[in-house]
């Protein structure tokens, strides 16, 4: 009796673990709530389709789940047809959700249109890429990627391939124009400050003595060195005197002669 109860309990345990694991371990369809939100009510995954997901562009995103703003995020979706009929992969939809409430869409990205036919026992890789906007910097968002596909009979299916919270970090590796120009402005300001300080100090030192000898301007010496004036120019002057400014000046010139 004891042994039978033990076996019974263990089988119940095994079954329960299996049931729970199937629910949360496998990549299955979107949460039922989300499915109801969308217009297609009872769409789920097909048992004949195997899907895989892999980030390509930030190489460590598969482990860390971190992206940088302004840098491309690229990922691959693998689609495996395990059944006997053709599948047509229609498109993938990528969206950012509010991390505490995945029904709230923060941003819907453009669909990745594929329309690829996948023959039985064949696989296809699809790619998609997006940029995270700067306004998401420094906070977590829920990233959801759904793949929509059809079988040969026209039945539509949706598979969720990625449904996790990711952190979006600010990109501080590259040169940003704003900080660069701020830096240049500070350099210019410091040079200006140095110049002003120099002026001020020199003024102070002048006031505190060191009186210079005053130079009194007495005009140029009356001797004119004609040597540097070209000959033709001097001749010109001898020939024809330029018109004097006013009659008064002319008179005074005559008197002097």
């Amino acid at each position: 009796m004891k042994l039978s109860t033990i076996f019974l309990l263990s089988t119940i345990g095994l079954l329960s673990v299996y049931a729970s694991d199937v629910v949360d371990g496998e990549v299955t369809d979107d949460a039922p709530k989300a499915a109801q939100e969308e217009d297609d009510l009872t769409i789920g995954a097909s048992p004949d389709a195997g899907l895989a997901f892999h980030f390509v562009q930030p190489a460590d995103a598969n482990v860390l789940h971190e992206f940088y703003t302004g840098k491309p995020v690229k990922f691959l979706i693998g689609f495996q047809n395990k059944g006997e009929k053709d599948f047509v992969v229609k498109f993938s939809e990528t969206s950012f959700r509010y991390p505490t409430d995945y029904n709230y869409h923060l941003q819907n990205f453009t669909r990745g249109e594929y329309n690829r036919r996948v023959a039985p026992k064949e696989e296809v890789t699809l790619d998609y890429g997006f940029y995270a906007h700067e306004s998401f910097a420094g906070r977590p968002v829920g990233l959801v990627v759904n793949v929509h596909y059809q079988d040969a009979d026209g039945n539509a299916f949706v598979n969720n391939v990625f449904n996790q919270t990711v952190n979006i970090l600010e990109d501080d590796s590259g040169f940003s124009g704003e900080t660069g120009f701020l830096f240049i402005f500070f350099i210019a300001l410091s040079i200006g400050g140095l110049y002003l300080a120099n002026q001020f100090l020199s003024k102070l030192s002048r006031k505190s003595g060191l009186s210079k000898r005053r130079v009194v301007e007495q005009g140029t010496s009356s001797e004119v060195d004609f040597e540097w004036i070209p000959r033709d120019a001097v001749k010109n002057k001898e020939k024809k005197s330029p018109v004097a400014g006013s009659p008064k000046a002319r008179k005074s010139a005559k008197k002097a002669d």
Binding site: L76, G78, R116, K121, E122, E123, V124, T125, L126, D127
Partner: peptide, 8 residues
């Protein structure tokens, strides 16, 4: 044997 096609 698995046959895979890449993205286009």
């Amino acid at each position: 044997l698995h046959v895979t096609l890449t993205n286009t």
